[in-house]
Write a protein that binds this DNA or RNA. Structure first.
Lengths: 312, 312
DNA sequence: GATTGCATTTTGGACGACAAAAATGCAATA
DNA sequence: TATTGCATTTTTGTCGTCCAAAATGCAATC
């Protein structure tokens, strides 16, 4: 039975599932609609929908006129299953197909919106939305009159180096901002994750997950800078990198080394020596640029279009 | 008689007017449709429309089956009038009203799309478009569920400083990029413009024009870096600054000094001493931040909402 | 009295129809 | 033959309608 649940309700349900997994909610705890609506900044409608869905998934129990409580003795598998069900990434699935096709070179460099609409069987509204998003990310441009022109993303060594030179100017400077402030919780989370990587968990992770973890670390640092412009700029460039950089991810040894360096950066920051941290971060980025550039230009790595499709 | 001319045709007409003003087109010169279509990368349709409009404005003469030529002895006033007519900023006119109202504080911090639509008498499509643009610029955010939440733009001293600290990390680094290359023509143009400013033309320019000239100079430098990411990031932040920074523009003396510094930066770059140029640019930005921050926080400057409206 | 249940209102996304803008192809003309 | 004139086709912007989703207000229940 397929539950039709609204996107917002799904997000709320996932949040509650996360709290159960994190041990912040236990069997028998009451889930008050008003309180949840307050914390999520929404009305009670999507909250009620989420709770109904969770109850249907047996993660919660509902008593008429008395509210909803967390079910007792929830099995981990049940949580996983529920999470799967509520994760609906179908929204940007066409976006990913377009990205994959563009990278694989099966899309003409110039095309009209209507062509995209026909090719991917998309409604016009959705097509417009996706094109706008791609344009914002910078790898497509409007032409005068009709149509769009795809831009070379980071596929050329030139553009790829440019992105790293930009980060090199940005990220170390972020550490040196007078408004920089450590986010204790985030540091703890990332320390654990990077340590797990070093300890061998790297072999159980997909390249997509590895990339996410790495870029999330750098974005976390940018956020700590206390200057939203640094964070925004990095986030924007990472959205682009996400499209292609896993191609350059072949060497697990390099990944472990990278995780070690991330740990070292956090050490330096916590020791208060921001200059050293910034310098080390700069070296970290510079070597990453060198390594990945070599992989890309040498033609190694996962460049076959089949893999592109699979990994998106 | 109101000419209904398409946006693209208007742009083309303005371009031709510019060429006449710049002395690159003279009375009797033929305007070939095919050639214009080629250079503008469009079809002949908008070209024909532009030529028809120009002919209606008596700037060109049209002979059946023989094409269009520039009219003889065009008066400067006629050019100005035509330019005015084809400048149809009606596209982002509502955007500007929203910006002005937000800065003036007459908009609630939280509002729905429908409210905006009603308040500014906009169709839903246009409203959506404008909201998306504002969201991209970063001074409004979607709330979960319905509606939008306006963010403080650069009005707080905190955010204002952040923007300058970001540029401080960005722009000097742009000069030091290995791909940096002087754009001779652009340098010549800006040198002339800045010199004119120093020589007193500053008194004939509005604060909006002054701001445009200044930010265009910095963007030109970023473009010379050869790294598109530097240019994009600066352009994005300048779109924000444009909204509010003319408020801090009161002191003409400071402006002349700024123009002098711009000239000095170009001198240093042309002398090949990029390190010195970068250092000087950094100082330039730092002092600008100090001066403007003081104006903003001291409450001087043009902060009354009437001026805000007028200047947009 | 706090909380849930439920009906009603409002919002915003999706789809289709229509109109304007741009592209295209071919005939007419210098 | 190169260029303009013009009719046709294609694309894209905009509007209105419908519908799901979210908000709101009030009654019912513990």
């Amino acid at each position: 039975m397929r539950h039709d649940i609204s996107p917002l309700a799904a997000r709320i349900a996932l949040d509650i599932i996360g709290r159960i997994e994190g041990g912040r909610l236990h069997g028998g705890d009451a889930l008050r609609e008003t309180a949840l609506a307050e914390t999520h900044q929404v009305s009670r409608s999507p909250i009620r929908e989420a709770l109904r869905a969770l109850t249907a998934a047996k993660l919660t129990r509902h008593h008429a006129n008395r509210g909803t409580v967390i079910a007792d003795s929830i099995k981990p598998e049940a949580l996983k299953r529920a999470r799967q069900r509520f994760m609906r990434s179908d929204d940007d699935e066409p976006y990913r197909r377009i990205a994959a096709d563009h990278l694989a070179g099966t899309l003409p460099t110039e095309c009209t919106e209507a062509e995209i609409s026909r090719r991917y069987k998309l409604g016009r509204a959705k097509t417009r939305h996706i094109m706008a998003r791609i344009a914002q990310e910078g790898w497509i441009e409007r032409r005068p009159g009709y149509g769009w022109a795809f831009q070379p993303v980071l596929t050329t060594p030139q553009a790829f180096s440019s992105s790293y030179r930009f980060r090199l100017a940005l990220e170390p400077a972020g550490l040196l901002q007078p408004t920089f402030k450590i986010d204790e919780q985030a540091f703890a989370r990332f320390r654990a994750a990077q340590q797990a990587l070093v300890d061998g968990r790297i072999y159980t992770m997909s390249s997509v997950e590895l990339f996410r973890l790495g870029s999330a670390f750098h974005e976390m640092l940018a956020k700590c800078s206390g200057n939203p412009f640094f964070f925004d700029a990095l986030q924007r460039i990472n959205r682009l990198r996400r499209l292609i950089e896993y191609r350059a991810m072949v060497d697990t040894a390099h990944f472990i080394e990278q995780a070690r360096e991330h740990l070292k950066i956090m050490d330096l920051i916590e020791s208060g020596d921001m200059d050293a941290a910034a310098a080390f971060l700069a070296r970290h980025l510079e070597t990453a640029r060198g390594v990945k550039l070599e992989v890309l230009t040498s033609g190694k790595g996962r460049t076959d279009s089949a893999t592109v499709h699979v990994h998106f």
